[in-house]
């Protein structure tokens, strides 16, 4: 048994650069077919984080030197405290919200723009759209979600934000220029004259398919595979995620029992054996979800919203 333990593919937390908040738990107004933690209006396996809980973690994060804060769900804006949570976060550092863009309200955005003006830091919105047409997007994300997400983008732009539109490449890579051109024109028509687009590789679908089929033993990361491997490519090497059940190793695995590492950041500052099927995908394709402004050390990849 001891020999076995030594053979585990262990990843240490290098430095806690990004602190994630599973701020809406698994609650979402949508129920996308590819959602990796199966969020929906009825999935209550993780609950909302309260303002107080988030503030406690922000205060705790100061001594860890956290560089950026990320907010995800579910749909973060279902959380009734979301606006005040973001306002408070901007006292501590930059914030990024991953939203489906369909529930935003003008009065919230007004308040948030005022908070940004008074802060040193950026507030980024990442809105997910899965393709440049409703025909491509809606079957995955639900009826009329294309139109509703675009309305959300319009609102953000009207309030002085520059949302990052993230999309999965559901087309061939050689068509990038054409499709992105189509997307730019569309966003232009909706009042967004310098759209920021971020394409996520198609492997998301592959990863999802693999995940749905389950992983075979051959897909597991082994200790030998980590020899000479740059573990900073893995989210779990530089992030932790706060959930209403405790602090988890990464946003991808929150559903796994061993992923909750403790109740405080200090308790969650320990190594993790990346033995899950999803870990093999991370290992192969690199980290997920950070913004382009972080640079390439973290390669953009799979699931966000």
């Amino acid at each position: 048994m001891i020999a076995n333990t030594e053979q585990l593919p262990i990843v240490e937390l290098g430095s806690l650069d990004e602190l994630w908040f599973q701020v809406a738990g698994t609650r979402c107004n949508l129920a996308c077919t590819h959602c990796f933690i199966s969020c929906s209006p009825h999935n209550n396996s993780f609950g909302f984080l309260s303002f107080d809980e988030v503030e406690r973690r922000l205060l705790e994060s100061v001594k860890w030197g956290v560089k950026e804060f990320y907010f995800t769900g579910g749909e973060p804006f279902l959380n009734p405290d979301m606006v005040s949570i973001l306002e408070r976060t901007l006292d501590f550092g930059p914030a990024t919200v991953l939203t489906n863009g369909t529930v935003l309200k003008p009065e919230w955005l007004e308040q948030l723009q005022a908070a940004v003006q008074g802060s040193l830091y950026s507030l980024e919105f990442r809105v997910s759209i899965d393709g440049p047409t409703p025909e491509l997007n809606d079957p995955i994300r639900g009826p009329r979600t294309f139109e509703r997400a675009l309305r959300g983008v319009e609102l953000l732009v009207q309030h002085g934000f520059l949302p990052i539109i993230t999309m999965t490449r559901v087309w061939d890579e050689t068509e990038d220029d054409a499709v992105l051109g189509q997307f730019r024109n569309l966003l232009n028509d909706h009042g967004y004259d310098r759209p920021r687009l971020k394409v996520l590789p198609r492997l998301q679908l592959g990863a999802e398919a693999t995940r749905t089929c389950g992983y075979s033993a051959a897909d597991r990361v082994t200790a030998e595979m980590l020899v000479g491997y740059d573990t900073s490519k893995l989210v779990c090497q530089h992030s932790r995620v706060v959930t209403d059940r405790g602090v988890a190793v990464c946003p991808i695995l929150i559903d796994s029992r061993d992923a909750i590492l403790g109740q405080t950041l200090a308790e969650a500052n320990r190594s993790f054996a990346i033995t899950h099927g999803a870990c093999a995908t991370c290992y192969q394709f690199g980290a997920i979800c950070t913004n382009p402004s972080s640079g390439s050390a973290f390669k953009p990849m799979t699931n966000d919203q």
Binding site: D17, V66, K67, E68, G93, Y121, N291, S293
Partner: peptide
């Protein structure tokens, strides 16, 4: 090659 932008670099960091 780490980017330290003013608006994305927290003081604690």
């Amino acid at each position: 090659n780490e980017f330290l932008w003013e608006s994305t670099t927290s003081t604690p960091f």
